[in-house]
Design a protein around this nucleic acid. Structure first.
Lengths: 339, 339
DNA sequence: GCGTTTTGATAAATCGTTTTAACTATGCAC
DNA sequence: GTGCATAGTTAAAACGATTTATCAAAACGC
């Protein structure tokens, strides 16, 4: 039925050992003629290795696992693409798990990946609103399995850990500074969930920018969103009776909601209100008023995650790596000098 | 190190055979007490099955492979999510492969999936512009492996094959009829690549709608795009010196390009020109002028694909299934009665 | 008490590959 | 002809689970 290494051995009159040595390109002294013969019959017979057998024997699968909260989210999808492309370059494979923002499914995914013997796991933890413990527990689970782990956007941890991060404090600072430079003083902020470090960091960057410019901070202009389109809308509802000339939404999706909300209240972007987002989601460039935003090199972060994991898989006692990425201010049409 | 079935056997003083029988819930006469003992020690010892070993022995992996052209594309991502959700419900796993629109990588993905012993493959073939042969060759490859295959949006094939499809001719018809009903007579069409069946079908649906209403068809108002944002823009450039009151873009992404193009020429949607898209991409609802579109139940199609594959895996000689899905006209703000 | 059925559990082969120590044959030096 | 190095190849033991035929003991019928 399926062609195995034994079949090739039989066909060439050699032993399975020899065939395996050649097919895996192991350092050994196999005559060049033999090598060629094996290679060509393998091709002719349509040999395809059985990775289950190999993985059983070697305990390696040349496969990475990726766990993301939602594959439909462009942000995670881009990260996934980065990882996948880097894997393809090295001939590795990936198993994706999209957990639909459920810590339970996240846990199941981890178990499944372990069962499948992956050589490394990239975890983009689900932004669990309430239960921080799930999050910790799942990370612990991976670590307890001794499988290399790389985490996105996580720094604080009791022990060093592989991570790809971007400096969100700086991102928050850059965005705010941009608005301040345009003359804005009454700036509203629509943040992410306060449980998320990324959101916290951005906010502290914003405050720092105010400080550095000797401007008074007003907590009343901060609305806590949850990174969804709807919460951008809600933010504007909340802000509708407040006085502000610019909005910094902590991601682009909420910025889209902000656009819609502002329109509802008869406010034009950027004439009446400047809007800045975060992420550089692909829609940002094709909106009616293209959105000024902070770009995260999320694709590159995906690629780097793969590199880190492969390296960790191949060097079991390499020290943890933290790769820090630079953010970039992308100025488009949604922000302008205050009138 | 890792807990195996043998370890549990040793710990309970039973044999590996018994442990396996219990853990897999096989029909057999194991004393209830024994069963309970095994289950509890397995839990205590943190046993996790080694799927490589199981798969080697049984030739089953409870894993499906999915091959899509681009994970970053919301359309495919939604399909993937549907498949994944359905898998999670059944305790199955998925291996995603995003091929970046490269037939070569598509081929590599197929090989990798085969090597990994997946129990079924869902193929969303890359819309290869020029070389139809790659496409055929890759499908043949999967079929030759005797692995269950389900294909999205493909009907024509010399032999019956599992597929999930939507009736694109009807979709084209619905969209065109909608515009005609609003009084439009000069309708421009921005299609997909003519090599793709889905695009062809939509176009024939459009023509049929014209026929049924005794309207003259004008090939000059047809622009062949490639489903990208840019080709929506290009389409409007091409049409700029033509006379038309409505545009039907064969997907929403091109419709976004159309929005932008029309703005460039000082035309407002829907006041000057009505625009209708296709897919119901998530941006369609959050555009400044929400887009009227034809919704494909792509998430459901993903779920169904999983069901088909699992069924095929468990019933090796079940006949091929073709699941047909209904399309729906979603009327938003981008189309209106002609002035 | 004997033969038969039922119950509960297991021995052992197997899946396809990898890997290491061991083996044979050949060439070479003397 | 003997000893030794080297080149080329292989035997055989894993890896961890599954599965079938088989076995031992207990229960049962009479």
């Amino acid at each position: 039925m399926k062609v195995t290494i034994k079949d090739i051995a039989k066909a060439t009159g050699l032993s399975p050992a020899t065939v395996s040595l050649v097919l895996n390109n192991r350092p050994s002294r196999i005559a060049e003629a033999t090598r060629a013969r094996i290679l060509s019959t393998a091709r002719e017979m349509g040999y395809r290795p059985n990775s289950a057998a190999a993985s059983l024997r070697t305990n390696r699968s040349y496969t990475l696992g990726l766990i993301i909260p939602d594959i439909q989210n462009d942000y995670y999808a881009t990260y996934a693409k980065g990882m996948e492309d880097a894997c393809a370059e090295c001939g590795w494979n990936m198993i994706f798990c999209s957990t639909n923002n459920s810590p339970t499914r996240e846990r199941q995914a981890i178990e499944a990946l372990f069962t499948k013997n992956v050589d490394g796991i990239a975890l983009v933890a689900t932004p669990s609103k309430d239960d921080e413990n799930d999050f910790i527990a799942n990370r612990e689970l991976i670590l307890s399995m001794k499988t290399p782990l790389v985490q996105m956007d996580l720094t604080a941890y009791k022990e060093p850990i592989n991570a790809v991060i971007s400096d969100h404090q700086k991102g928050g600072y850059m965005a705010t500074r941009h608005l301040i430079a345009l003359g804005h003083r009454k700036i509203a902020f629509i943040t992410g969930p306060s449980s998320l470090e990324g959101s916290q960091s951005r906010l502290s960057g914003c405050k720092k920018a105010f400080q550095d410019n000797n401007l008074p901070w007003d907590d009343g202009l901060v609305y806590t969103g949850n990174y969804s389109y709807a919460s951008g809308l809600d933010g504007i509802d909340y802000l509708s009776d407040k006085d502000f000339t610019a909005v910094f939404a902590f991601n682009d999706l909420m910025a889209c909601g902000v656009y819609c909300g502002l329109e509802k209240y008869g406010l034009a972007v950027p004439t009446d209100v400047s809007v800045i987002g975060y992420d550089d989601h692909f829609v940002s460039g094709i909106l009616s008023v293209p959105l000024t935003t902070i770009r995260q090199p999320i694709y590159e972060m995906g690629k780097e995650s793969t590199r880190i994991l492969i390296h960790a898989a191949e060097n079991p006692d390499a020290p943890p790596v933290v790769s820090k990425f630079d953010l970039k201010l992308i100025v488009r049409k949604s922000t302008r000098k205050i009138r």
